[in-house]
């Protein structure tokens, strides 16, 4: 596994672990006066997930795969309905 890919995998595992916010389980305090902290944490988590994927898309995009898909092959496997 190459450096950037490994970094993204580690970051993904850390993010997945952070989903389990046991420390918020019994807390009922409100953020901004209306958002229960358990909900505010996970709403923020969604934003962080979007940022994480933006970074992956920016720095870990599989360009090679895209080029491979576009390479012409002699024939396709599926003729009926499957042509490009």
């Amino acid at each position: 596994m190459k450096g950037p890919t490994l970094a993204f995998v580690v970051a993904f595992v850390v993010l997945a672990a952070l989903h389990q916010d046991n420390w918020n389980w019994d807390r009922a305090d409100l953020v901004f006066g209306f958002l229960p902290v358990g909900l505010a944490y996970h709403a923020g988590y969604s934003l962080v997930a979007a940022v994480f994927w933006a970074v992956v898309v920016r720095f870990g995009w599989p360009d090679r795969l895209e080029a491979w898909a576009e390479e012409p092959e002699e024939e396709t496997d599926e003729a009926g309905g499957g042509g490009r």
């Binding site: 993904f12 993010l15 997945a16 989903h19 996970h42 709403a43 988590y45 969604s46 997930a49 979007a50 994480f52 994927w53 992956v56 898309v57 599989p62 795969l65 895209e66 491979w68 898909a69 576009e70 390479e71 092959e73 396709t76 496997d77 599926e78 003729a79 499957g82 042509g83 490009r84």
Partner: peptide, 26 residues
Amino acid sequence: SSSGLIHAACFFVIGIRLWAIGKRHG
């Protein structure tokens, strides 16, 4: 919130690769 992380992971890890194979082989 779990879907936000995991769905996007499926699109990136599975979807793009399947798209490439689907396009290449029809």
